[in-house]
Write a protein that binds this DNA or RNA. Sequence first.
DNA 1: AGTTATTGTTTAAAAGTTGAACCAGGCTGA
DNA 2: TCAGCCTGGTTCAACTTTTAAACAATAACT
Lengths: 169, 169
Amino acid sequence: MTTRWLTPEEQRAWRSYLAASWLLEDTVDRQLQQEAGMPHLYYSVLANLSDAPDRRMRMTDLAETLKITRSRLTYVVTRLEKDGTLRREGCPTDRRGSMAVLTDAGMELLERTAPGHVETVRAAVFDHLTPEQVNQLEAICTRITDVLQGDEESPGCDGLPWRRRSSAE
Amino acid sequence: MTTRWLTPEEQRAWRSYLAASWLLEDTVDRQLQQEAGMPHLYYSVLANLSDAPDRRMRMTDLAETLKITRSRLTYVVTRLEKDGTLRREGCPTDRRGSMAVLTDAGMELLERTAPGHVETVRAAVFDHLTPEQVNQLEAICTRITDVLQGDEESPGCDGLPWRRRSSAE
DNA sequence: AGTTATTGTTTAAAAGTTGAACCAGGCTGA
DNA sequence: TCAGCCTGGTTCAACTTTTAAACAATAACT
């Protein structure tokens, strides 16, 4: 079968997307590094904890929502623990498990830096989009996320074989 | 001034965006690593060269379009040169400069791997979006890119002070 | 000529990433 | 119950990437 190349519109969209996403990630990373002393991923760990019930999460769940390996998460959490923004606690119901718990210091850091972070995101993105565009963006990104997570079971689809193999294979 | 938090719509959009962009970058990286033996950034260097007139570009221009530091680009190009996919040539008009030139091997690699890459992008993104959504995506991302690049000179704007200082300061 | 700015590389240190190995605790079934 | 397998999480060592500062060469301006 011959390759189905991207149409000119698709090409433009893809290029725009790449430029925007790299630039944006860079901007956010830089701002958080500046004001919170940590890159985006680390901040996201704390942010996720602050949303979770009781401000705590199982390592595996955290890794899953952040879409990173457990190994990588261990590395990140170790540093955050050293920083004092979170601590580990054993899991009461499963003695193998451990939970990452946001400390008061971590919560304070979030409260202190969230405004700047939000302001960055606003200045970079939302202040320049119409309400319709905000909704469009959400619809598009949700679709992509669903596809990549395999919440997609259309039988005709070949699947994305290069996705991280979960355990089989 | 009190913080202008994100509206619920904006929050949803932002979260969707983050999930999609991380997942997508991961997917593309993994696929290219698999089939082209290099991560996305490296591939982009080659792709940019292949589009450029005479398949060559100044290092600084390349760094600029890829939005990375020259230092980082040097590292990347050194590896690609070792791989044989590109070579360096001195710049005729500016004896300080050097140009990255795509080799035949590099071109072959692109031709060999482009179909798989396109297929990945299609399967992850474009096969699931309507033509309107494709245009919406482009409009949104172009807007963001323009803003972050400062093609934006509205005088009332505070600017984004954490952008990489180009040379002043 | 004498600054000053750019271009691109080098270097050393720090940071991040990976995958395999590993331990401990759960789970299942004879 | 206990052997065998699965899971959660960490450790380790190798490797890759990233950063920032310093540098050499050349351009450009005054």
